[in-house]
Design a binder for these strands. Structure first.
Length: 516
DNA sequence: TGGGGTATTATCACC
DNA sequence: GGTGATCCATACCCCA
C-alpha cells in the first residue's frame, strides 16, 4: 500500500551498466594533471560513569568538549553581565564599529518568504494535500546583509525579530545537554531494511526558508530533534527547527525558522561535528570560513583567503577543517593552532565535495569539475607528489563523491548523466548508472547521497521527484508528491532518524520526507 | 591552445 | 497563464 501523498513509479527501471573494467592502476598514481552546560553535578555524574569504563576516542573528545563548554559558559555569564551593563551605555553613544550592510540589489527584489506552518496560517492541511501549492506567505524583510567584518555576533548577522535568536540558542544548548556519547549509528542488519514506501511528505514538512538557491544542506546531529541548516546563494544561512512546536508555549510567530547573513557570496558548505553540536562551520565563495558558535553567540571568521571556497568537510573525531579552494586546491586548517596546516593541489579544476570514510578516516574522497573523483590516503599524500589511491574518471564534471555509511562504497555524480557506484577491494568494482543530471544553469547540480545503509542512494529528478537508486537490486524508483512543486537538487539524511530525508531546491524550499 | 561568446536549463515575481 | 529576469555552471564552438 502506498501512503498518502506519495506516488512510487513501478515497476522500477533497471538502468545499470555492467561493471566496468578499471582502466586505472591502483597505486601509486598521480592525478591527471597534478598542480593541482550542563550543571557540575550532572557533569561529575557523567564523568564518574565514564570512568567506569574505557573511553573511546569519541567519548574522550565529547567529555573534553563538555568540560570546555562549561568553563566557557562560566566565563560567559560574567561577560553577559558586563554586556548588560555596557548596553545601557551603548544606547547613549553610536556604535564604534558599525556593521557594513550592503545587500545586493537583487536581495531587495526577492524578499525571503518566511515559512509559516499551515496551522499557523489557518489553512487546513487537506487543501495542500490535494495538490494545491501552499499560499504565498506575506513578504518578509530581505535577508540580512552579509558583513565582511571578521568578528560578527549572531545578533549582527541575524535578520530575525529581536529575541527570536534566543530560541535557537536555547534549543541548541538543550540538545547539547542531551547529546549522546556515541557517534551516529548506521543501520544494522537487525534494524531491517528501510521500507522506502514508508517515506512520505506531509504538508507541515514543506517550507520555503531562504531566498534564492539552496547550495548546501546539513542536519544538526541531534538525536531527538530535527533541525536542518541550509546555505543560500546570497550568502545567507538559515535554520529550520521542524520540532519547535514540541517545546510548547511558542506563539504563532514561532515558525522555527532562523535566518542569518554571515557571507557575501554563495555558501558552499556546512559542517557540524557530533561532539561539538554548538559549532557550525560555513564556507563560501567569498573566500571566508565562518564559525557560528551558538554558546558564544558569535559568527566569527575562521579563515579568509583570496580564492573562492567550493567545498568543506571535517574528518570524524577531528576539529581540523578540510576545504577546497580555488582551482583544485585543498587546504587543511588547524583549528587549535589557527593556521593552515597543509596545502595541496589535487585537481585541475575546483573541488566540489570532500568526504571521509567512516571505517578509515585516512581515506578521503574528492570530486572535481576536472572530470575525476579521487580517493586519497591522507597518510601517503605529500605536498609535491600528491598521489591518489584511486581515480574514477567521468566524461564531464563530477559534482559529488560520497562514501557509503559503512565506508565500503563510493557514489559519484557527474553531469555526464552517470552515477558511479564504486565498491569491492580498493573500490575497483564499478557500476555506472544512467541518470539525467542535466540541471542547467539555474539549478544546483545534483549530488547523490547515501541513505542509512549501503543499499540506497538518493538523487534529484528533473521531473520534480526524488530518485532512489538501489545498489542491490540495481533499480531506480521515483518518490513523488504533489506537494513537491520544484526540483530537489541537494539532500541530507538525518544521522539518527532513519527515514528522515531533507531535499532542497533552487527556490529556497525544503521538502522533508519522513518515515512512519 | 586559450580566451571569449553563446546555448542550455527552472523558478519566481509581476502583470 | 504569459513573460521577463535571473546570471557565481558547464560544454562547446570559433577565432586569434
Amino acid at each position: 500500500m502506498i501512503p498518502r501523498g506519495i506516488t512510487v513509479s513501478l515497476p522500477a527501471t533497471s538502468l545499470f551498466f555492467p561493471p566496468l573494467p578499471s582502466t586505472k592502476p591502483l597505486h601509486p598514481l598521480t592525478p591527471p594533471h597534478p598542480k593541482k552546560k550542563k550543571s557540575q553535578k550532572a557533569l561529575s555524574l557523567r564523568l564518574s560513569l565514564m570512568a567506569s569504563k574505557t573511553l573511546t576516542e569519541y567519548e574522550r573528545k565529547r567529555l573534553e568538549n563538555i568540560k570546555r563548554n562549561d568553563e566557557m559558559i562560566a566565563s560567559l555569564m560574567l561577560q553577559r553581565k558586563a554586556a548588560d551593563l555596557s548596553s545601557s551605555i551603548k544606547r547613549l553613544k553610536p556604535q564604534i564599529r558599525p556593521l557594513k550592510r550592503h545587500s545586493p540589489e537583487k536581495n531587495n527584489k526577492t524578499p525571503v518568504v518566511i515559512r509559516r506552518s499551515l496551522r499557523a496560517r489557518g489553512i487546513p492541511p487537506d487543501a495542500a494535500a490535494k495538490g494545491s501549492p501552499p499560499p504565498p506567505s506575506p513578504p518578509a524583510p530581505p535577508p540580512p546583509s552579509p558583513a565582511k567584518s571578521p568578528s560578527l555576533t549572531i545578533r549582527e548577522a541575524s535578520s530575525n525579530a529581536p529575541g527570536k535568536d534566543r530560541r535557537l540558542i536555547e534549543t541548541v544548548a538543550r540538545m547539547c545537554e542531551n547529546a549522546p556519547l556515541s557517534p551516529p549509528k548506521r543501520m544494522s542488519s537487525t534494524d531491517g531494511p528501510l521500507d522506502l514506501r514508508s517515506l512520505k511528505l506531509e504538508p507541515e514538512h514543506v517550507a520555503r526558508i531562504i531566498s534564492g538557491r539552496i547550495m548546501a544542506v546539513q542536519f544538526f546531529p541531534f538525536v531527538d530533534r530535527r533541525v536542518v541548516a541550509v546555505g543560500g546563494k546570497f550568502g545567507n544561512v538559515s535554520f529550520w527547527d521542524v520540532d519547535c512546536g514540541l517545546d510548547g508555549g511558542n506563539d504563532a510567530d514561532d515558525d522555527g525558522v532562523y535566518l542569518y547573513g554571515p557571507h557575501t557570496s554563495p555558501v558552499s558548505g556546512i559542517s557540524i561535528q557530533p561532539f561539538s553540536l554548538s559549532k557550525v562551520l560555513t564556507s563560501s565563495y567569498d573566500g571566508f570560513i565562518r564559525l557560528m558558535d551558538v554558546e558564544k553567540e558569535t559568527f566569527n571568521m575562521l579563515y579568509s583567503g583570496d580564492d573562492a571556497i567550493y567545498s568543506l568537510s571535517q574528518r570524524p573525531l577531528e576539529t581540523n577543517v578540510y576545504f577546497g579552494e580555488g582551482q583544485g586546491g585543498l587546504k587543511i586548517w588547524d583549528e587549535r593552532a589557527g593556521k593552515v596546516l597543509s596545502s595541496y593541489s589535487l585537481h585541475e579544476k575546483r573541488i566540489n565535495t570532500i568526504d571521509f570514510s567512516s571505517c578509515n578516516a585516512n581515506l578521503m574522497a574528492t570530486s572535481s569539475t576536472d572530470g575525476t573523483a579521487c580517493i586519497w590516503d591522507l597518510r601517503k599524500i605529500s605536498k609535491h607528489r600528491p598521489g591518489s589511491l584511486r581515480i574514477h574518471q567521468h566524461e564531464k564534471a563530477v559534482h559529488s563523491a560520497y562514501f557509503s555509511p559503512s565506508g565500503s562504497c563510493l557514489a559519484t555524480t557527474s553531469i555526464d548523466n552517470r552515477i558511479g557506484i564504486l565498491s569491492g577491494d580498493n573500490f575497483m568494482d564499478v557500476s555506472m548508472i544512467r541518470h539525467d543530471n542535466q540541471t542547467g544553469r539555474w539549478l544546483s547540480s545534483f549530488r547523490a547521497i547515501w541513505g542509512w545503509d549501503d543499499s540506497h542512494v538518493f538523487v534529484g529528478n528533473m521531473k520534480r521527484a526524488v530518485d532512489v537508486i538501489s545498489t542491490v537490486k540495481k533499480t531506480t524508483t521515483a518518490m513523488e508528491s504533489p506537494l513537491m512543486t520544484a526540483i530537489p537538487c541537494r539532500f541530507a539524511a538525518h544521522p539518527y532518524r532513519h527515514g528522515t530525508l531533507a531535499s532542497t531546491t533552487s527556490g529556497g524550499q525544503i521538502y522533508m520526507w519522513t518515515s512512519t
